[in-house]
Each structure stands twice: as structure tokens, then as C-alpha cells.
Write a protein that binds this DNA or RNA. Structure first.
Length: 420
RNA sequence: GUGGGCGUAGCUCAGUUGGCAGAGCGCCAGGUUGUGGUCCUGGAUGCCGGGGGUUCAAGUCCCCUCGCUCACCCCA
């Protein structure tokens, strides 16, 4: 094998690739039904957009971006996440001024992070995301959490858990942050973690290492240091989720990895995935627009991992009966003249709305029939010299092995009736 | 970026103290002049991830390298 997919990447192949399509469809259906419009932005953006938007204190920006200079000397970065590009597009095209707020958008696409690959973590991965920009309303936060939840449920997932927290805003976070830093500075931490205390102390709460967690038992928590406005907002989000019957768990140590999050933060986790337990996550990012040069635009959004969601489905045994894309009718031509006629027949069937395929490559009847069986088709059409001479074609029901002769000029209509 | 495990046929894997590269499934052909799925018979699987070393001899031992994988870290 001379080439293989780049390190940390993989290919979606049939039949699993059909699942990927179905998952994108299922995760996006709820938001499409909720008035979110589809947005498609470039796979790469100016590097500075991510530096200023995602934040220079994050590992994503400092260690994991695919950044390069293009032939015009511009610094370009393959997007490591979707939100910054969507906000940029909204600002660039003044969508926030063109109509009623919030601007509701959803997207689906590739994301890139230079990471050491492991189960559920790849250098190229896929997310479905949704963003609601320009409105500060706890119902919007609750709506998005509920929509993601409905999406997961529609796929049959039963073990997705919602973790919920509030990180405070520009009023209360600075004081909380100072309190937290004072606490963390007294702990026994390694050098990298001490550096994190200085630039992004909230992230330290999210550290999974037991020796770190053991020291964090008495750490000051954001939820205990919220200002009145943040507290009321958070309680309203919780009340709305309760009312909607969307179950969640309060997780006071949940912190998002990207700098732009404020107030509501949430994560969708699944126990069957190993270390990369998060299948989706998001939160409110009221300051992001201003960070990238726009007006105040309080917003909330999430991103759901397509490949991780599929791993979660696998863990719940939901992928047992993967089926390949199949057709209803399969043509078995015998000889060149029959092949030409079959080509037209199959084309006609497709135009009539009947999924059809045929044997290619001049295989014998036996091999072609084998292909017909493998295709999953209900009917095989056998066409040879004898049939052509009679102006007929053999229609074989592959489930019963019953075979009937049908006039060539009416076979499309007959099959159309049978498969519908 | 750090640490562990693993790379043998299309797939899942076996391969003993170093001694002729194997099994199951799948694939192909025939049994059946123009009929799949079951059955019977036969056949082909291969740079044993790559490179170097030790040895009369390496899939097996040693070194390097690439890839996969699990965990840390990070995050969807």
C-alpha cells in the first residue's frame, strides 16, 4: 500500500458512511425545525480570527492549529471549531442588522486540530453546530440544550448525559477568578498546571488527574460566586429545562476549553466512549463578537461531534444492522446487445423513481446473479439473446425465486407498480 | 507533547526453544449450455508495516522508523 490517510485521520466507508450521513441529518433536524438557517463558511479563516476569538490562552490555539502561509503571504488556519467563523460571517454580512434577533444558524462540517489521535479524537473530525446570536434570553440557552438533547434521542441514544454550569460574566467572573487563583496558587501543582493557573485558571478545575482533583475538593466554585443577574439567569435556564423534561446534572467544575464562554456552559457526555467522553458541548459567549471587532452580540451555541456520536451509538449497540445502500432492481444482461438494452432499461427505471443497478464488467450469469443477490435488490432482470428475440425480459423475485416473463416495453411500468 | 500495547491473506486472527508462512470467514472457478442465497469440489491469496543488525538460517532476537491503539494531556 503506497499511500494511506494522513496520521490521525480516517475515511468513512460504506456502510458506516451511511450512518455518518444519517447522524448529521438527525442532529440537525431539530434545529431546522426551530428556525435555524443553514450557513456554510470557509474551511479556513485568517489565523487572527481564531487567535482573538477562541483565545490565545487555549491549547487549541497555542498547540493544535493547522496554520500556514498561503502564496500571498497571508496566515491561514484550518478551522479548529465552527463558532468563530459563523460569528465572523454574521458580522461581515450584517445579519444581526438585517432582521429580527436572534440570528439563528446551523452548520455541518470538518474541523481540524493537530492532536495525538486516539479513540474519538482525530485530527480531522466532523461537527454539527448551532448558534443563536444577538439575544440574551435564558429560553434561548434552554432551547439549544433541548434541541441537542432531542437530536441525540432521535438517534436512539439513551445514555447521553447533560452537564450544566454557569461561569459568570464580566461582572462577577473577575472577582471569582481572583479568588480561585489565590486558592490554586497554594496547591502542589506541576509546572504546566501552574502556568495554566496564570492564564486560564478555570480550566484547572476540569483537570481529570486524581492527584489534582484531590486538591480541588474545597476549591471555590463559580456557581457560588455569581452576581445576581447571572444567578437569576442560570436559575431560569434550569427551570426551563426542568419544565421541558430535559434531564441534566449540575456540574460546578465544568469549564469550557475555549475562552469565549460566559454564563451558561454545558456538555453532553456519554459513558461508553472511554477518555473522550464528550459527544457535544457549548454555552453562551456574550463577549466573542466584541473580541473580534464587532458590536455587543450576546449569543449561545453548541457543537456536536459527528464521529463521537457514532461511537456512542456503537457503544449502545445501535449499529448492529448496518445496511448498505441498496437498490430495488438489479439487471443481469447476457451479451453485448443485452447489455446495451439493459443500460437503457436501468436508466428508464431510475427516471421512473425505481432504484436500480446492473452487472458490469461482462460477468457470466452466475456471477451477475450473485451480485444481484448481494445488492439487496428485490427483483433481478435477466435479459439474454432469447429474451431480446422475444421482446421480453425475465423478472425474478429474489425473495421467492419466482420468475415471470414480461414484455420489454412494459417492464418499467410493472416494476414501478411492484416496488411502490 | 508523555507513557503502555499492537502491526502476519480482503477481514478476524494463530504461528512452539529461531528451521518449508497457516486457519476461519470472505473472494474466484466448477458441480448447473441462461439463474443468486444452501450444499459439494477445487483454486488464488502475502514485501509477515518499512529499513538496518545478529545468525548457516529471522514472522520469531536486537536497533531505528512508520502506522494503529489505549491512557495522560486536550476537547466535540
Amino acid at each position: 500500500m503506497s499511500f494511506q490517510a494522513p496520521k490521525g485521520t480516517f475515511d468513512w466507508l460504506p456502510p458506516r458512511s451511511e450512518v455518518a450521513l444519517a447522524v448529521r441529518e438527525a442532529l440537525s433536524l431539530p434545529v431546522r425545525q426551530a428556525g435555524y438557517g443553514y450557513v456554510e463558511t470557509p474551511t479556513f479563516e485568517d489565523t487572527d480570527l481564531f487567535k482573538r476569538g477562541v483565545g490565545e490562552s487555549t491549547d487549541v490555539v497555542t498547540k493544535e492549529m493547522y496554520t500556514f502561509e498561503d502564496k500571498g503571504g497571508r496566515s491561514i488556519t484550518l478551522r479548529p471549531e465552527g463558532t468563530a467563523g459563523v460569528v465572523r460571517a454574521v458580522l461581515q454580512h450584517n445579519l444581526h442588522q438585517a432582521g429580527s434577533l436572534p440570528v439563528k444558524l446551523w452548520y455541518s462540517g470538518s474541523q481540524f486540530r493537530y492532536e495525538r489521535a486516539q479513540r474519538g479524537r482525530y485530527r480531522h473530525f466532523w461537527q454539527v453546530g448551532a448558534e443563536a446570536l444577538g439575544a440574551e434570553d435564558p429560553a434561548l440557552d434552554a432551547e439549544l440544550i433541548a434541541l441537542a438533547w432531542r437530536g441525540y434521542r432521535s438517534l436512539g441514544l439513551e445514555r447521553v448525559e447533560i452537564l450544566l454550569n454557569s461561569l459568570g460574566d464580566r461582572e462577577c467572573r473577575p472577582a471569582y477568578r481572583a479568588t480561585l487563583v489565590a486558592f490554586l496558587e497554594k496547591l502542589d501543582l506541576d509546572e504546566a498546571t501552574r502556568a495554566r493557573v496564570a492564564i486560564n485558571p478555570l480550566r484547572v478545575l476540569d483537570d481529570n488527574r486524581p492527584e489534582v482533583q484531590a486538591q480541588l475538593v474545597d476549591a471555590p466554585l463559580a456557581v457560588d460566586h455569581l452576581c445576581e443577574a447571572c444567578k437569576a439567569y442560570h436559575e431560569e435556564v434550569r427551570a426551563l429545562l426542568d419544565a421541558a423534561g430535559v434531564p441534566y446534572t449540575d456540574d460546578p467544575k465544568l469549564v469550557r476549553g475555549l475562552d469565549y464562554y460566559t454564563r451558561t456552559a454545558f456538555e453532553f457526555v456519554h459513558g461508553g466512549l472511554g477518555a473522550q467522553a464528550s459527544v457535544g458541548g457549548g454555552g453562551r459567549y456574550d463577549g466573542l463578537s466584541e473580541q473580534i471587532g464587532g458590536p455587543p452580540l450576546p449569543s449561545v451555541g453548541w457543537a456536536l461531534g459527528v464521529d463521537r456520536t457514532i461511537l456512542a451509538m456503537e457503544a449502545e449497540g445501535l449499529l448492529a444492522d448496518e445496511e448498505r445502500a441498496s437498490v430495488a432492481v438489479y439487471g443481469v444482461p447476457l451479451g453485448d446487445e443485452a447489455r446495451r438494452r439493459m443500460f437503457l432499461l436501468v436508466d428508464g427505471l431510475r427516471q421512473a423513481g425505481v432504484a436500480a443497478d446492473m452487472a458490469f464488467g461482462g460477468r457470466g450469469v452466475k456471477g451477475a446473479m450473485k451480485n444481484a443477490g448481494r445488492s439487496g435488490a428485490r427483483y433481478a432482470l435477466i435479459l439474454g439473446e432469447r429474451d431480446l428475440a422475444a421482446g421480453a425480459v425475465q423478472v425474478k423475485d429474489l425473495t421467492t425465486a419466482e420468475q415471470t416473463e414480461v414484455p420489454l416495453d412494459s417492464v418499467i411500468d410493472i416494476l414501478k407498480g411492484k416496488v411502490q
